[in-house]
Structures are given as structure tokens and as C-alpha cells.
């Protein structure tokens, strides 16, 4: 395991842990998702750069485009939740629980 590999793995796992355990705001959850996507971007670009795989170095861009799509869909859901529930607190998302 190289230090770079360890770094992006731990960054991703930190993002995942934050998303799992700390859920005060929906916006915080979306930021954690963005952090995970950032570490994935670093992982893909460094893989392409270290193996000098030229044809693969377009894939981080595709990843970034898709993560931008995901982020904008998440923000749209944030706005929609603020419309219907009045705030973006995760605690107010309790209409459907058993």
C-alpha cells in the first residue's frame, strides 16, 4: 500500500463515516458526499498519472461531470425539502418512519 493509496482511502472513509454518523443537516450530508467524490477524483487521476495511462486520464473528468450532476440533484432535493418540511434538518424527515 502506497501513502497515496492510504490517503485517498482514509479520506473516502472519513467522508463515508461523516455521512453515516453525523446527520444534523441535509447540507452536511451532501458536503460529505462531495468530499467522497473529491477523494475519488484524486484516486482516479493519480492512478492514471502513476501508471502513465494516457487513455484513462479522461475518466476523472467524466467522474467530475457525474458528481456535479449528483451534487446538483442533491441541492435540488435540498430546496424541495426546504419547501415541504420548512428546514433542512434531518430530524424533520420523519413522516415515513415505522
Amino acid at each position: 500500500m502506497t501513502p497515496v493509496h492510504f490517503t485517498f482511502s482514509s479520506a473516502f472513509m472519513l467522508g463515508l463515516t461523516g455521512l453515516t454518523f453525523h446527520r444534523t443537516h441535509l447540507l452536511s450530508a451532501l458536503l460529505c458526499l462531495e468530499g467522497m467524490m473529491l477523494s475519488l477524483f484524486v484516486a482516479l487521476s493519480l492512478w492514471a498519472l502513476q501508471l502513465s495511462s494516457i487513455s484513462f486520464s479522461a475518466s476523472p473528468l467524466l467522474l467530475l461531470a457525474f458528481s456535479a450532476c449528483e451534487a446538483s440533484a442533491g441541492l435540488a432535493l435540498l430546496v424541495a425539502t426546504a419547501r415541504t418540511h420548512g428546514s433542512d434538518r434531518m430530524q424533520s424527515l420523519n413522516l415515513l418512519q415505522c
Binding site: 441535509l26 432535493l77 424541495a80 425539502t81 419547501r83 415541504t84 418540511h85 424527515l93 413522516l95 415515513l96
Partner: peptide, 8 residues
């Protein structure tokens, strides 16, 4: 509201 919450 239920639909939005389920979607989120």
C-alpha cells in the same frame, strides 16, 4: 412532503 422525503 412524503414523496419529497422518500426521494431524498
Amino acid at each position: 412532503p412524503r414523496a419529497i422525503e422518500a426521494t431524498t
